[in-house]
Design a protein around this nucleic acid. Structure first.
Lengths: 201, 201
DNA sequence: GATCCGAATCTAAGCGCTCACTTATATTGT
DNA sequence: ACAATATAAGTGAGCGCTTAGATTCGGATC
């Protein structure tokens, strides 16, 4: 275990990060199969072979992006849904956080929601587990609100799916040059979430 | 103009249709760039060259699929939203129809919502116009409901976007082997649409 | 009713090109 | 000396698409 980072190694770290960034941009714009490893290397300012100094394969780049992205979302939503608040506050906070991520990081979000079919079976199972954990957080907030009488919906599981669905689809249609800001969308969707779950006024 | 269809020509029609069907399945499962023209031909039971007897290019297959799909949706939603009903009935009918299409035809829906980046600029503009028409139908129902006092939402345009968003994202997560039927989802989402637009009880 | 023609369908073979990835080597900083 | 970073120059495989020709079939001609 060598914990010392030399300047040469630091350069390697930066290259590795630039390759990941370039892969996110390219996968988002052209899709995994529409992107060549040369595209990624060129965008990162490196030769085609440099990709394989830092990453085992093109698929491993996608896997690294997907793991990181889902972990960030799971942590953010879990934090937002902390239990020391009313069900209405919890569902509004979780949706607000989820929407903010998908609008602000729509490039990453596009990749981690729409390119998963290119993962190996094993990597896909790993990501599916993370996604199930995110689903569970949202569903349990809604179910608890229904149990406590704060919410009124005929199908908590479908309601939770709809809330996540709205956030994910943001990544498809959101544009930085549009007139809707991430914050204005977060406000609107947080209010909308309370309507969806039938929060008592 | 020869209107007579010989049996030879009828065979050609069937081959053309089988190629389109095979392209929908393959594009949906592996994406446009992840699908080879050989994949499509083989699935249609033809040689690789047969693709080019019936279609100019792989991109033209995608274009044909996208035009047909969007026209079907636009017509279905327009019909469902006929003006001789209350705003609540109209929005519920439009959402019901939209949801039914995206659940029942989720394979086609996946292609026409997630593979559009592979279209040429000209074809993309054509599809964008069809999509804008669909958006307009939904937005005008919501806006009219707000004007008449039947609906209460702080932002009709965002509400309409959210309703379409829910339907589109169905194509991403819906599975035929799941326990939710297209009809049960249409029921749930139609009710949910009334909550989203703040329909008065 | 046999024969040929023209039009359409379909394929075998293969073209030039790009793909993901490898290898052998050079460069760099400690 | 050494270990890490980076590249030049490939590799075989697969890509979209073309070409030249075989096959099929209905209708016109004798």
């Amino acid at each position: 275990m060598n914990e010392v980072r030399t300047s040469t190694q630091a350069r390697g770290d930066r290259s590795r990060a630039r390759l990941l960034d370039a892969a996110v941009q390219a996968f988002s714009a052209k899709g995994f199969h529409g992107t060549s490893t040369r595209d990624i290397a060129t965008a990162a300012g490196l030769s085609p072979a440099a990709v394989y100094v830092h990453h085992r394969s093109k698929e491993e780049l996608l896997h690294a992006i997907a793991v990181r992205g889902h972990e960030v979302i799971l942590e953010a939503v879990t934090d937002a849904a902390r239990a020391d608040a009313t069900p209405a506050e919890r569902v509004a906070a979780a949706v607000r956080t989820y929407v903010l991520f998908h609008a602000r990081s729509h490039t990453t979000a596009r990749v981690i929601n729409y390119e998963l079919a290119a993962l190996t079976d094993e990597h896909l199972r790993e990501i599916a587990a993370l996604r199930r954990a995110i689903d569970t957080v949202m569903r349990e907030i809604v179910e608890e609100g229904v149990r406590s009488g704060d919410f009124d919906t005929p199908d908590p599981a479908k309601a939770a799916t709809a809330l996540l669905s709205l956030g994910i689809d943001l990544a498809r249609w959101y544009r930085d040059d549009g007139s809707w800001t991430p914050e204005s969308l977060a406000d609107f969707y947080a209010d909308l979430a309370l309507r969806v779950v039938g929060a008592r006024p």
